[in-house]
Design a protein around this nucleic acid. Structure first.
Length: 246
DNA sequence: AACCAGGACGTGA
DNA sequence: TCACGTCATGGT
């Protein structure tokens, strides 16, 4: 057992962390869509490309597909680079599965070059498109996603949580880093265990599934937002206010 | 100029 | 199972 489950009882720290992050940064409105410009109606000023406070995304199967592509392209890369690739693809193919399928390998490689690893990601995308097309609009199982070359645990959960609004918490390197720094998990804790730890903790505080999915979406986005500031350069966690909760 | 970024996979112990 | 090398562009 790599996870300390002493935190699962009473008001657990995982949820306290969420509340503090939320009150500090506010709603994040993930996932970003390249053609969606948020019209501001709340306190969150100077934000574009996000849908702050709106949870009815993706709005159609094309946007689902965009989340999937973005999830693959953003592997070990900044999303700014992904935006460039997505715009290239948009201009070339309208960002549709059919359009990308009609591209030859070299065209796709050039289009996604800004996001790096373009050789393997090109293969991943072609592989994913045949999988996605066969779905015919249905929600994929996590197991099926993991069987697609190029889709690991994080990418699968990213697709499920943001693309299909499924109750799957995403564990990324930032999440691991923050939780370990705060002493909530073992340094070598496994993805599956950390995910269960987060989900169990959140379930203890949020009874409605609908609400939990929103919490999962905002929580992951908040961790990335926070970690970019305090957990990017070593030593990690300098200036991080979350320590006050531990 | 080194280091990092919203990881996944293949390999050999 | 696990530790390690590889994949690659772009920003700081």
């Amino acid at each position: 057992m790599t996870i300390k489950d002493e935190y699962l009882k009473e008001e657990n720290k995982v949820y306290k962390i969420y509340k503090l992050l939320y009150s500090t940064y506010g709603q994040q409105g993930w996932w970003p869509f390249i053609d969606y410009k948020y019209v501001n109606t709340s306190k969150n000023q100077n934000t574009s490309g996000y849908h702050i406070g709106k949870y009815d995304f993706p709005r159609d199967n094309i946007e689902v597909f965009e989340v999937c592509l973005g999830s693959i392209l953003t592997q070990n890369t900044t999303f700014i680079s992904v935006i460039k690739s997505l715009h290239n693809l948009k201009a070339l193919t309208k960002l549709t599965p059919e359009g990308i399928t009609e591209l030859n390998i070299e065209q796709l490689k050039i289009a996604i070059k800004p996001s790096g690893y373009y050789n393997q990601k090109t293969r991943y995308i072609f592989e994913f498109i045949s999988f996605f097309t066969a779905l015919n609009g249905k929600v994929p199982t996590r197991e099926a996603l993991l069987n697609v070359v190029g889709i690991g645990e994080e990418t699968a959960d990213s697709i499920l949580l943001y693309g299909y609004n499924q109750e799957e918490f995403i564990i990324d390197s930032y999440t691991m880093r923050v939780l370990f720094s705060l002493g909530l998990i073992d340094e070598k804790a496994k993805y599956k265990d950390v995910k269960e730890f987060m989900q169990t903790s959140i379930k203890a505080c949020v009874s409605e599934k609908k609400e939990r999915i929103i919490v999962y979406q905002e929580y992951h986005a908040l961790i990335v937002k926070h970690a970019k500031m305090f957990y990017s350069k070593k030593p990690y966690g300098v200036g991080c206010m979350l320590y006050a909760l531990i």
